[in-house]
Design a protein around this nucleic acid. Sequence first.
DNA 1: ACCGCCGGGTGCC
DNA 2: ACCGCCGGGTGCC
Length: 964
Amino acid sequence: MFSRRWRFGWDRYSEVDLFTDRHETNTESLSQAIRAAVSEEPDADGSVLFGQMQGTVVGLRYYTGVVNQGEMVALVRQPQNPYDRNAVMVANVYGSQVGHIKRELAAAMAHVMDNNLAKVEGVVHSRTKNQFTMPVMLSFWGKEENKDAVIQGLARHGYKLNTDGNKGAGASMKSGPWSGTAPLPRKGLTIPLTAQELKNAFDNLFEGLMESKEGEKEAAEAVSTPLLPHQKQALSWMCACENKSELPPFWEKRGELYYNRLTCFSAKEVPERVRGGILADDMGLGKTLTTIALILTNFHKGKPLPVEKCSSPTKASANLRKAPKLEGSSSERDRTGVDDTAADSRCSDINQIEVICVDSPEAVEVESQKTSASQGKQKATKRKSKTEPPALLEDDGFAAALSGSTSGMSSKIKKTAKKATPAPGVETSSLSAEDLSARATLIICPLSVLSNWLDQFEQHVRPNVKLNLYLYYGSERNRSKKFLSSQDVVLTTYNVLSADFGNKSPLHGINWLRVVLDEGHVVRNPNTQMSKAVLDLKAQRRWILSGTPIQNSVKDLWVLLAFLRLKPFDVKDWWNRVIQRPVTQGDRVGIQNLQTLVKCITLRRTKTSEVNGRPLVSLPEKVVCVEQVKLTQEEREQYELARTEGRNTIRRYMAEGTVLRNYADVLAILMRLRQLCCHPDLLAKISSDLAAAATPAELRERLIEKLRLVLASGSDEECSVCLDSVRLPVITHCAHVYCRPCIAQVISTEKEMARCPLCRSEIKTNELVEFPPEEMEEEDSANSQNWRSSSKVDALMGNLRRLQFEDRSIKSLVVSQFTRFLTILETPLREHGFSFVRLDGTMSQKKRAQVIQEFQSSAPDSPVIMLLSLKAGGVGLNLTAASHVFLMDPAWNPAAEEQCIDRCHRLGQTKKVVVTKFIVKDSVEENMVQIQRQKQDLFEKAFGSKNADKKTSRIDDIKALMEL
DNA sequence: ACCGCCGGGTGCC
DNA sequence: ACCGCCGGGTGCC
């Protein structure tokens, strides 16, 4: 049985799932429920309003600010207050002290607040008649189960909470001074949105954001690639965002004061402007190019970035440009070495994009290969481009090397060298007064797109322009703040940033001109080190690039807004109170506010958007054709045998009602059939006896085998707790696969009662089985000696050879879910002299980048085929060199196939894209295609089906597949 | 006069 | 604070 807490989690899920992407949401809410059950902190969006009461704010005379009618205030406990350990401070939106709650009431509130029984929020009157005290309406929010404790706790001190939200209080609330605390829902006053309306509102949050964002801007001369109209538009918008003097959303000038419409707070100072925003264009629309254009086009005062230019780009420079970068063949490297010494100080031998950090994932070797002489040369070249005296740079590095403490030393140097740079610790207010000395743009991205940035800089910046770009990555990275802040661009990864954070991070000691978060949605959990590291960066301008700014729910937006320093939402409590909670509860005004907010800071176009009635981008045509494959007689016989056997087994489980209990077995049967459709050698050698295991060792052995089957399937098998792909997989004795941390949490939450979330069998931590470490891949069963073909292999080879005959330059992606199938395919490819590369999930990032680079190259000897595992990489992978895609086997999830096709059918593709899907006639594959189709319909209609439903529909799938 | 009352000083927690 | 509280001055009406 689920404990009560669990139920609570599910119930709550059914309320909020509308905000979330169907795929990950239910998970989210489940793990959220677990977290909520475990943690002490009451979760803001699960809170209910206990009631309200009026209190008194005293000590007002010490506040010099203005108090407005209906202004929202925060209540902050001050246990360290020397006059009263029960003190409760009343703070304004900026956190400044307005006053205190009077002593007796503070005593009552302290008890409630210190025991986390409720969160208290306040709304105040203006201070008209009395300059010493004022009334405050207090609202108490918390978890339902604490309601009584709060009411009684207050009653003990002689205070009565008005729990009647609908009548007495409600009437005055309509127009009264307390409207800011309006409890929800209020019958008869405001009708909350229906679930459907809410969902629509949320779906449309990022739509239609183009209004009043017209206007195009040409990129600076240094950008060599002509921008498409929509990119010029984006550039225009981004420049405007950076240069604008407008107030942030919801702020307006009222006389001498700046007033916030939502919180009714006003201040004398101009609220910090948000110089930046979210560029949320669909992938493929050129966010990277636009950002590069922004960097080069909009330096201080709207002028282009001052860059050195070389008068005559020689043909040598074109070659050289490629030199010290992330990837590149060794021959290229050698050439570079030669030219480096020969070409000496001519401008043309300075690389257009000078990637100074040689310690990139790949380039470690480069560094070690170089002679110390050439290293010296490289440094000399670098120095020339700087304005600082070279000795300083040297000393700095030297000092760092000696002391191991970069920051101490470099900050000393900085103070003497550059007075204009504010000392660390001076907060951002000094930044808003244009610090014209800030130069560098910091770009943070996931490791997987690091090489893409380097490529794009190289590709889009004119060869004669010298842009100082430093790759802050690798153990030898230069941690000198002086050095880093003098770059034009510093590129690093989220991991490096968070590893540095709190560890004398030089990145956090620099006042950046601009910080860009690429794939910004990766920081959405505010509790992670990564988010904290990102939020702690100091910058004048801040950008977020993301195709999917909301991954799961409204909550995801908070980190992004906090990063943009959008007052007052950069403080979590204010975000929760003013936006998140109202929205979660279906409050129309709340949703409106959220929409306004998003609109003000976001530019989003989709592939289907139009500019002036024309589609944004015109991609070349795409044709998808299905090629039926007929099995040979031998293959057919083997297939039918397996099918009959499997069908009988599944029939038995259905009759017994034990399908879920034997889920792994069922999957294994389907897997075997799918594998037989591809190639007989894909079949894992299944431990022969399927009879009940006699010994624990045997049981363990069999479970490991099943685990292998489930995982090796490459199908979109996910952990049923987090609904993400399984990480650190373990299998239970009932043969269900979960992430170890997920299931461990379930067990620890349910204590001795723990049961499998899928089949309710009892589970124990010590019975979880994981892969023995050495087990991972027993390779080379499919080596070339015993190699044999299959119908599908033949079909593919026929196509490839025909293509090759037609045009030797055509490149193809060959995609399978089974990495072992890819291995099998290597043999005939080699035999027929195809040059190919392979990309699968097991490869390191470094290797991946190298492979992609090779494949994308247009060199005559570059590979023409990429063997690609369906799930490898992820979004953002750019394989536009290919114009043909062969999908070797149908996937459960049609979206996965689409995504894969999109990797070559995207911006930059010049040829017509031809997709060929191989489907074995009269097989489980045909049925899978059928189910795919239904699924697409289903997905569009049924949103947020619960996990249980999901599994049930899986059973239906299985029935359909096996024609039961 | 070990009280009550008056009026000045004073003031968030 | 056009309050309440404190504590010193004062003392029938």
